[in-house]
Design a protein around this nucleic acid. Structure first.
Length: 501
DNA sequence: AAAAAAC
C-alpha cells in the first residue's frame, strides 16, 4: 500500500472507496495554499487519522515511523489551531511560544522545522529551530523577535531557557517526536525539566516508532486520555525492501563493502557503522578506493554534519557513512540502497536503518554484512521482523566452513590455552562510567572471581509511582530550570517536580 | 556494547 504523500509515479494508488482530501478537514485556506504549493492533495493514512483528532484538541499517542507523513500529521493541525485561537491575552509577549516540538537529533529538528515553515509560509505565524553545536547568538536574535512555534533538541532549549531568551509559560501544544529515541538515558532528565516548565493546561502529542513498556509509561505520565493512532506496523517496510545478508570474515569487512559498492553500480548509498570511529575509518578507506564518501556522526562538528548531509542530498557524494545518528527520521528521497557495515546492537535499529530506503512507494535494497560473532544479532533481528533474511554469497569474501584463519598468517590470534590470556579480558571496566556515577567499579587488581559489575538499570522518573506526600517543588511554578545538580540529586529534584495530577 | 544531546 502506498503510505506516502508525494505524487510518486512508481507507487500505485490503491483504489480507496472515497479519497480524502486535505480540503476536507476545514483547514485555513492559507494552509491549503501551502499544500498546493508542494503538490499535496491527499493525506496519508496517519494524516487522515491524526489531523481531525488533533483539531479536536485531544492528546495523541501516535505509532508511526518517519516516511509515513507524520510530520505534516501533527504540524498542519497545530498551525490551524494556533491560527484559530488567538494568543492568550495575559501574555506579555507579542509572539509568545505557543507550540513546542522536541526531536532527538539536530538534523531531525532542522527537517521538521523546514516542514513547519513550508506549511505556515502563507500565515502570520512565526517558527524557528533551536539546537546545539552552533552559535547561540543568531538563535537568540530570532527568539527575541518572538516565535509561535519552536522546534528544538532538548539541551539547547534548556540553555536558552537559562539565558531567559525563551519562555515556555504560554505553550499550548507540546509534541514529542521519536519518543522512543528520547527515552534513551540522558534525555530523561532534560525532558522532565522541560515538561515541568510547561503550563498544565495544554495539548500533548507523542510519536514513537516502537512501543515498549517504558514508552507506554511515559505516555501515561503526561498524556491526558490520549487517542491512540497506529499506522503501518514497522515491518510493513519489508514489503518494499529486498533484504540480504552476506557473511564475511572480520578482516574483510571494509573490502566487502567496497566490493558491494563497486559491483552494484549503486548511485547513492548510506552505510551504517556501529561506531563513530568505524564510520570515519570506513569513509576514509572508501575515499582511498576512489569513491566519493563522507562520514556523519556525533563527533563531527555541526558544520561538518550539515555539510555531509547537504552534499549527499545534492548528489555530490555517493556514499554517506553514518552512525545511528542518521538511522531515524532523516528523509532523503529516492535512496535505493542501505548497507549495514555492522549489524546494529538493537534489533529495532535495523528496522530504522533499512527504513531509510524503499521510501515513496519505491523499492529498495538493504544489504548487511556480518561475521561469525554476529550470529546472535542476526537471529534477534530476524525474530523481530518475523522473517528469515536471505543469505547471499559474496564471491571471494564468504569465509569457508573450516575457518578463515589460514589466510592471515601473522595476525592470527593466540591459540586458546590454559592461560586464558585473551585480549578481551581487559577493557570491560574502562567505560563503565556513564550509568554509574561513582559506583561499584572493581579497581583493585584482584577481582577474585567476582562477576563483572552489573550495570544496574537506573530507575527513570516515570517508572516511579507518584508520591503525593512529597512537598511541591517551586520548579513547576517558576519559569526557571533547576540549577545544575549532581546526578543523584537531579533525579530526586525531578520527582519532586512532577505535576500534581 | 554504542550513540545522541548544552556550554
Amino acid at each position: 500500500m502506498s503510505d506516502f504523500e508525494t505524487p510518486s509515479a512508481s507507487g500505485v494508488q490503491p483504489a480507496a472507496p472515497a479519497q480524502v482530501r486535505f480540503s476536507d478537514f476545514g483547514l485555513s485556506p492559507d494552509i491549503l495554499r501551502a499544500l498546493t504549493d508542494q503538490g499535496y492533495e491527499h493525506p496519508t493514512p496517519i494524516q487522515a487519522q491524526a489531523i481531525p483528532v488533533v483539531l479536536q484538541g485531544r492528546d495523541v499517542m501516535g505509532a508511526a515511523q518517519t516516511g509515513t507523513g507524520k510530520t505534516a500529521g501533527f504540524s498542519l493541525p497545530i498551525i490551524q489551531l494556533l491560527l484559530a485561537h488567538a494568543s492568550p491575552s495575559m501574555s506579555p509577549a507579542r509572539h509568545p511560544v505557543r507550540a513546542l516540538i522536541l526531536t532527538p537529533t539536530r538534523e531531525l529538528a532542522v527537517q521538521v522545522a523546514e516542514n513547519v515553515a513550508a506549511y505556515s509560509r502563507h500565515t502570520p505565524l512565526r517558527s524557528t529551530v533551536v539546537y546545539g553545536g552552533v552559535d547561540m547568538k543568531p538563535q537568540t536574535a530570532i527568539l527575541r523577535n518572538g516565535v509561535e512555534i519552536i522546534i528544538a533538541t532538548p539541551g539547547r532549549l534548556l540553555d536558552h531557557i537559562e539565558q531567559k531568551t525563551v519562555s515556555l509559560s504560554q505553550v499550548q501544544m507540546f509534541v514529542m517526536d521519536e519518543a522512543d529515541r528520547m527515552l534513551d538515558m540522558g534525555f530523561l532528565p532534560d525532558l522532565q525539566r522541560i515538561i515541568n516548565l510547561l503550563p498544565k493546561q495544554r495539548q500533548n502529542l507523542m510519536f514513537s516508532a516502537t512501543f515498549s513498556a517504558e514508552i507506554k509509561r511515559l505516555a501515561n505520565s503526561f498524556l491526558n486520555n490520549p487517542v491512540t493512532i497506529e499506522v503501518a506496523r514497522s515491518n510493513a517496510t519489508a514489503d518494499k525492501v529486498t533484504q540480504v545478508v552476506y557473511k564475511v570474515s572480520d578482516e574483510n569487512k571494509r573490502e566487502a563493502v567496497a566490493h558491494i559498492l563497486r559491483s552494484r553500480e549503486l548511485k547513492q548509498v548510506i552505510v551504517f557503522s556501529n561506531t563513530k570511529i568505524g564510520a570515519s575509518r570506513l569513509a576514509r578507506g572508501l575515499e582511498q578506493e576512489g569513491m566519493k564518501a563522507s562520514a556523519i556522526h556525533g563527533d563531527k562538528t555541526q558544520q561538518e554534519r550539515m555539510a555531509a548531509l547537504e552534499s549527499f542530498k545534492r548528489g555530490e557524494i555517493d556514499v554517506l557513512v553514518a552512525t545511528d545518528v542518521a538511522a531515524r527520521g532523516l528523509d532523503i528521497s529516492d535512496l535505493p540502497c542501505v548497507i549495514n557495515y555492522d549489524l546494529p546492537y538493537n534489533a529495532e535499529d535495523y528496522v530504522h536503518r533499512i527504513g531509510r530506503t524503499g521510501r515513496a512507494g519505491a523499492s529498495g535494497d538493504a544489504i548487511s554484512i556480518y561475521t561469525d560473532k554476529d550470529e546472535r544479532l542476526l537471529a534477534d533481528i530476524e525474530k523481530l521482523i518475523k522473517q528469515t533474511i536471505k543469505r547471499g554469497e559474496l564471491q571471494g569474501f564468504t569465509p569457508s566452513a573450516r575457518g578463515s584463519e589460514e589466510r592471515s598468517g601473522e595476525r592470527r590470534p593466540p591459540r586458546r590455552g590454559a592461560e586464558g590470556e585473551r585480549s578481551s579480558e581487559r577493557g570491560s571496566s574502562e567505560r563503565s562510567g556513564s550509568a554509574r556515577p561513582n559506583g561499584d567499579r572493581p579497581d583493585r587488581g584482584d577481582r577474585g572471581g567476582r562477576p563483572l559489575p552489573r550495570r544496574d538499570k537506573v530507575d527513570p522518573w516515570f517508572l516511579k509511582p507518584y508520591e503525593p506526600s512529597r512537598a511541591p517543588s517551586t520548579l513547576a511554578a517558576a519559569d526557571v530550570p533547576a540549577p545544575q545538580a549532581k546526578p543523584k540529586q537531579k533525579i530526586a529534584a525531578l520527582l519532586g517536580g512532577l505535576p500534581k495530577e
